Amino acid sequence: MTSEPGRRPLRASDADREEVVEQLREAAAEGRLDMEELDERLGLALTAKTVAELAPLVEDVIPAQDLPAGEPLVIKGGVHGQSRVGAWKVPARIVAHGGMGGVTLDFTRTSVRHKVIEVEANGSVASVTLVVPEGWGVDTDGVHPGVGGLWNKTKGEQRPGTPLVRVTGSGGMGGVYVRNPGLLQRRKLRRELES
């Protein structure tokens, strides 16, 4: 892509560089880059002056973010409940039905390739609970509270480069709960990163 005459290339921010560094590290962890390539690209990312210099560093290892949404992941709590925790790949769309046992979607250790994650949450008899990392955006304007209510306990503003979780649906009888990781979960995640 060439820039228009008279227009200067957009300067890269620290957040832009940090996002590319994280994407490169993740690509290396998945085996898409060897250590030599990772070191070379990290050096280039950390010294990049413009956004145009950053883009080629990840375009061959990170899938495009505007891929078609495809079929949604449907999770039904049923009688015993269902959950998605740990390292799981998050699709662009999720439909969660609390049923009698409830549904928990924990995004704290996930692999996310989408700028927006659409979650249709229906509380049914039991609740639908979403656990999102601090700094992610959350939009719950599309949720009808129902009898169980809507509880958004997330803190802070959305950080640049993080996904937006857009929640729609109904609280039903069990409610819809959105929160950040609790103290014990944050400590566990910190220990895992340090080891």
Rank of each mutant, 00 (worst) to 15 (best):
L44F: 09
V51L: 10
H97P: 04
R93Q: 11
P72H: 09
L33S: 06
L24C: 12
E26P: 04
R25Y: 12
T47G: 10
A121V: 02
G86L: 03
A15T: 15
V21R: 01
A45C: 15
G86Y: 05
E18T: 08
D16E: 12
E134M: 10
V112E: 10
A69S: 07
L24G: 07
A69G: 10
V103I: 09
L67F: 00
G123E: 03
R109F: 00
D39R: 14
D34R: 07
T129I: 09
V85A: 13
I75H: 08
V138S: 00
G99S: 06
Q82S: 12
P63V: 15
G99H: 01
A92C: 08
V20R: 00
V128T: 04
D60N: 11
V79R: 05
G31R: 13
T47I: 03
V103E: 02
G99E: 05
A29E: 13
L105F: 10
H80E: 11
E19P: 09
E40R: 14
D66G: 07
I75G: 05
A96K: 01
T50H: 14
M35F: 14
R109D: 13
E37N: 14
L44S: 12
M35P: 15
A69V: 08
L42G: 10
V119I: 13
L33N: 09
W136R: 02
V58F: 09
A92E: 15
V20T: 12
A121T: 00
G43Q: 14
G123N: 05
A92D: 14
A126D: 07
E19S: 13
G81I: 02
L67W: 13
I62D: 12
G31Y: 09
G43A: 03
V61E: 06
P72G: 07
D139M: 07
G77E: 03
G70C: 12
L44I: 10
P56A: 06
E59G: 12
G86S: 06
A27L: 09
V125L: 15
G137H: 05
V138W: 01
T50F: 13
V20Y: 03
V119E: 05
G78A: 15
V128Q: 01
D139F: 01
K89I: 03
A92T: 02
